[in-house]
Design a protein around this nucleic acid. Sequence first.
RNA 1: CGGGGCGUAGCGCAGCCUGGUAGCGCGUCGGUUUUGGGUACCGAAGGUCGUCAGUUCAAAUCUGGCCGCCCCGACCA
Length: 436
Amino acid sequence: MLKETPAEAQIVSHRLMLRAGMIRQQTAGIYSWLPLGYRVLRRIEQIVHEEQARAGHIPMLMPTLQPADLWRESGRYDDYGEEMLRITDRHKRDLLYGPTNEEMITDIFRTHVGSYRELPLTLYHIQWKFRDEIRPRFGVMRGREFYMKDGYNFDIDKEAAVHAYNRHMVSYLRTYERMGLQAIPMRADTGPIGGDLSHEFLVLADTGESEVFYDAAITDLTFGERAVDYDNREECAAIVQEWTTPYARTDETHDEAVFNEVPQARQRSRRGIEVGQIFYFGTKYSEPMGATVTTPDGARVPVHMGSHGIGVSRLVGAIIEASHDENGIIWPEGVTPFHCGIVNLRQGDSSTDAACEGLYKALTAAGLEPLYDDRDERAGAKFATMDLIGLPWRITVGPRGLKNGVVELTSRRSGESEELTPEAAVERVAAIYAGS
RNA sequence: CGGGGCGUAGCGCAGCCUGGUAGCGCGUCGGUUUUGGGUACCGAAGGUCGUCAGUUCAAAUCUGGCCGCCCCGACCA
């Protein structure tokens, strides 16, 4: 826990992550995730897994190191350039630290799947990736090593693959919203992945790396609690329609003429952090790599594919960029490393010690993970620490309140407090998290 | 990769110009004090001064090479 800001950190999320002891840089663009940071990373990962499962996608795990031969097959070994970290093993075989997995998944698919009966299929994994950025910066937002969910859909034809595309967009909207983020889908370039249909998901933040242009109408949309049948093509298409109708593009695809059709009062230009992207690229990999299936009439056709990514490690930084104040981080309930902090104002006092331990047990029994600050520090130091690490709820236990049988429950976001009995405070916190 | 900067205790920095006993703040440890928003005081531990070579009686300090890191730009989930 640091009072002083490390000189190397330029942007707020990086500074706060270092100060809160979430990460430690090991070398340029490569970080260790310390216990506190690791908790957040895992919670984000968990949300991604849950929402993938909801959409019917199947988890697996591919390695970080890949044989160069697969990439020679697709032609990307030479195309990818310096960003790809190439490694040679003791037998002088060429390997690479994967920046993405299209080739590998296509290879797996072609050896294990051969019939239209096995489609549609969407496989995904969450794994460390490496891109040897020329200049890593902004902490985990632009590291060289990063943790990413990447998924790949396999479908019999374009129509089915477009449904997979739509399904992913819907699923992603839900995923980001659970993390307390508004991520706006914006029409995007396909870059080195290729293909002809792509959207990026952008979180608005002043420190974002891309300039974005959008119709204010899109920020009024919320996904909310709607139940979605992910197999229903019309329903998914309708939701995609809803979210892609208002103008929203990054500078890469921005079209001034079209943007000017948006009423002046609703035109917005800000900066955004990219936290995910989805692609439909058809047979770009399946054709050269021979990933085909037999159709009902016995023909062999290359499968239609798409890929979809969520920057899991980057999201930790992006969430902080979108949710902090001058005192520190403000975690959304969905991703907070601990559900509730307990601050003992007089460590060593038998009444406050007992009350804190009671709260800790009761919160744990309610299925929550509390963080108990039992350091022998002054109140100010404990409050400052809690504010910095940003737990959304804090229970303050002091001798003054205990005399009247109450503790104080404080919202990190609003700063508002209320006095409650310890039992009521536990119930209250449990109720807050009951939905998530 | 072009331009700029930095490397001295766990962290933030001074010292370097003008060579001569390695310092300050925070943190850590021990103690006293204090106790509802980063308390004050006393004491202690902790450093191959990035690295290699050179100059010199003597190098954190001067010179050169190398390594690492940061910032601006081009590039990027």
